[in-house]
Nucleic acid binder design. Structure first.
Length: 760
DNA sequence: GTAGGGTTAG
């Protein structure tokens, strides 16, 4: 509908254009119009001939107008013609004539009123809007109206707002809107101005006007058009102006709902997705239930969006409630709905429940709408099975897929299975599956490549991995950042830093852009290898590439630097962190504390602890470990024991094996073996498992006091607990037991492990 | 629906 057609339908104008037919009138006009029916009313006939005459007079160019006759026709009885007549005359002229006529009226009309000017000006605008290059003409007219202070009526403003908006003169549009009489500000004109305000990012102005419309008893409430573009605007983001917060979105949707205006199916789903993405699941659910209750159209997609959000929050209870609600309201679940539930169960390692849902979805007796599982659902299940080590069942499910029409295994299916066999160390089976892909004409992807490369790396076959990568490359497949990161990390882990660096260079050379993870991995590898200059070089490259250092990467560097006692550099790093707005975390503080503790700087360690607490960070078992270690190294086992007692009761951080090890080692070294033994008991009582280090410390202490029986007891316990001795254990025991002629016991000890290995 | 990464104490 054109703007003109819309105007024609609105009431005030119709009153001008049509004969008066008010039933309460007993005037002659009323009778005449009645008697004239069904023929055109006389009034209109009169108007028509009058208008035709005036228009005729206006046909020559302005200088040739018959001003006398014109004046006579227009103003002969001393009063101006009706607004309706002027409007209709003007609308029959072309743009330039209309403008001339308007100027003539302004100059000559004897009793000039705002309404007359406004109405005629509106007619000029209307003419302009239907001519070529209407945009420029309207803008010109707008400027003119300001220059000459011509008041704009609602119709004129309605025409001008979109035109001003189009060229970004949104402030002017708002001024024009504000000048309209409040009682005329109908929904249509409000829609126009709000739309422009939103378009140009003037969110606050828009929301303010919207609020007026959304009031409970608003005179001009929102309509479906309002809803349409407001909901649309709520979905867009990152455009000019401030962001509309999720809370505002929720509030608006609710208020629209109170006026019976709801987002359409698609927008509802998108709004819900947006809310869910930002953690506003409760709001998303509220909106969904609102629409359901108002009997709006809700389809599975909207419910699926909420189900996804609930799944992410691990809220299985409400997932079930929503599905029950869907059933009640006859909202048919689709494959995606089942996929979400199955995926949730698989990711929570509840694979058997996932399989139950799967069996029910198309075969269950109580389901009115059977849904065929699709490839994605099969793949989800196969991945779920593989992730809990049931890759054989995964294989069976793949066979079952082949039996279902249109559900052939694809690349993802194979990738999941290959990863499954990799994770349990069955590299050969993984490789066989890869070969099977070629036979089955399922193309491998870069993920297939990376999965196999990772499997080989994780099982100590880095060279095979490189070889395989090269083969794939000669087959035309390209690696990506993940491929290189996998290999780089693998080489770092075996301390082959040069090879790692070489791969990084290769990655750049072949035009594969490293991502942040690639940089982080190399930085970590270099730091751990003590090559801090190389590490900081890579840091500079990371920054050049536009990535940012995060707390973890700084921690890696700080740890590396403190291991090399480069304290000044550590402080430099801390300063840089602050400058870059990266807050030190618990691990940063723990790293610092353990460095100062190890180097005997107890006071500095305490200072770090104070700072950490003042930052609101909660000490962990590692924090206590560092502190206890510091006191032990200072020879103050009493204070160490005091902290040990405090940590479990006051701070509720239970000590772990490492804490006990520190204390037992220190006590044994100070010949307080009895106390160490009592800690061993405490470990048993508290269910903290001793490690090889624990036993080694204990054996050293016991040897000093020659407490053989106790040593034998611990040797038995090590065997029972399958706690493997290391070379230190063997050194202590061999030396001690040989010296006292108990080599038989030592032999049995070693044999015990052989037995446990063979039985396993 | 599938792949890669880095941090602290003995």
């Amino acid at each position: 509908m054109t703007i003109y057609a819309a105007a024609k339908q609105s009431k005030p104008l119709r009153r001008f254009l049509k004969p008066q037919t008010h039933k309460t009138h007993s005037s002659s006009l009323f009778l005449r119009s009645l008697s004239a029916e069904p023929n055109p009313p006389l009034q209109e006939e009169d108007d028509e001939s009058y208008i035709a005459q005036v228009v005729q007079l206006l046909q020559p160019s302005e200088k040739d107008w018959n001003f006398k006759q014109l004046h006579h026709l227009l103003f002969s009885d001393g009063s101006n013609p009706s607004l309706s007549r002027l409007f209709r005359i003007t609308r029959r002229l072309n743009y330039s004539k209309a403008l001339d006529f308007f100027d003539y009226l302004r100059a000559n009309s004897p009793n000039q009123e705002d309404s007359e000017l406004s109405s005629t000006f509106h007619a000029v605008l209307d003419v302009a809007s239907r001519e070529p290059s209407s945009q420029n003409k309207l803008l010109e007219l707008y400027r003119r109206s300001k220059e000459l202070s011509i008041p704009l009526n609602i119709k004129a403003t309605t025409l001008l707002i979109p035109c001003l908006g189009r060229v970004g003169m949104v402030d002017e549009a708002l001024i024009a809107f504000n000048k309209i009489d409040p009682s005329c500000k109908n929904t249509h004109v409000r829609n126009l101005i709000i739309r422009e305000l939103l378009k140009w990012g003037q969110v606050d102005d828009a929301l303010h006007l919207l609020d007026e419309m959304l009031e409970a008893k608003a005179e001009f409430p929102p309509d479906s058009v309002t809803g349409d573009f407001v909901f649309g605007a709520l979905l867009k983001r990152g455009r000019a102006g401030r962001q509309i917060s999720e809370d505002e979105i929720f509030g608006l949707v609710v208020k629209f709902g109170k006026h019976g205006v709801f987002p359409d199916k698609l927008k509802l789903t998108q709004l819900i997705m947006k809310l869910c993405r930002n953690g506003k699941i409760d709001d998303a659910l509220d909106i969904l239930y609102d629409v359901m209750k108002s009997e709006g159209v809700v389809e599975a997609a909207s419910c699926n969006a909420v189900l996804t959000g609930l799944g992410r929050k691990n809220d299985f209870k409400r997932m079930n409630l929503l599905m029950a609600e869907m059933k009640e309201r006859n909202i048919q679940p689709d494959a995606v709905t089942f996929g979400i539930v199955i995926n949730f169960l698989c990711k929570s390692r509840r694979v058997d429940e996932a399989l139950e849902v799967f069996e029910k979805m198309n075969g269950g007796e109580n389901d009115r709408f059977p849904v065929e599982p699709d490839v994605i659902i099969y793949n989800t299940l196969i991945d779920g099975l593989c992730k809990v080590g049931r890759q054989e069942e995964g294989l069976q499910l793949m066979e079952r897929m082949r039996l279902q029409n249109g559900c052939a295994p694809n690349t993802v299916t194979y990738n999941c299975l290959i990863d499954g066999f990799n994770k349990v160390g069955e590299i050969e089976r993984a490789r066989e599956l890869f070969d099977e892909m070629e036979k089955e004409k399922v193309p491998p992807s870069v993920i297939t490549l990376n999965t196999l490369v990772d499997g080989m790396c994780k099982h100590g076959r880095i060279n095979s991995a490189v070889e395989f990568f090269n083969e794939m490359q000669s087959d035309g497949m390209k690696g990506n950042a993940t491929t290189y990161t996998t290999l780089i990390s693998a080489f770092c882990n075996v301390n082959n830093i040069n090879k790692a660096m070489q791969l990084f260079d290769e990655m750049l050379r072949v035009g594969c852009t490293p991502d942040a993870i690639a940089y982080y991995s190399l930085i970590s590898g270099l730091s751990r290898a003590g090559r801090l200059d190389d590490a900081s070089f890579v840091v500079s490259k990371l920054k050049e590439a536009g990535f940012r250092m995060d707390a973890v990467s700084y921690n890696v560097l700080i740890n590396g630097l403190s291991k090399k006692s480069k304290v000044e550099k550590v402080y430099e790093m801390l300063k840089e962190m602050e400058e870059n707005g990266v807050k030190p975390d618990v691990i940063t503080y723990n790293t610092l504390m353990s460095y100062f503790s190890k180097t005997g700087r107890l006071e500095t360690a305490h200072e770090v602890l104070r700072k950490m607490l003042s930052e609101g960070l909660v000490p962990t078992v590692v924090t206590y470990g560092a502190l206890i270690h510091a006191y032990c190294l200072n020879g103050d086992t009493n204070e160490a024991m005091k902290i040990f007692r405090e940590m479990s009761c006051a701070s509720k951080v239970p000590p772990n094996t490492v804490i006990f090890n520190i204390l037992i080692d220190s006590l044994c070294k100070r010949s307080e073996v009895e106390l160490a033994l009592s800690l061993m008991d405490e470990m048993r009582v508290k269910g903290v498992k001793p490690s090889t280090t624990t036993y080694n410390a204990m054996f050293k202490g016991l040897r000093e006091k020659n407490l053989l029986d106790k040593a034998f007891k611990f040797m038995d316990r090590m065997v029972v607990q399958a706690c493997n001795p290391d070379y230190i254990t063997m050194e202590i025991l061999t030396e001690w037991l040989s010296a006292v002629g108990e080599t038989e016991k030592l032999r049995n000890f070693v044999k015990g492990y052989e037995v446990s290995v063979s039985s396993a």
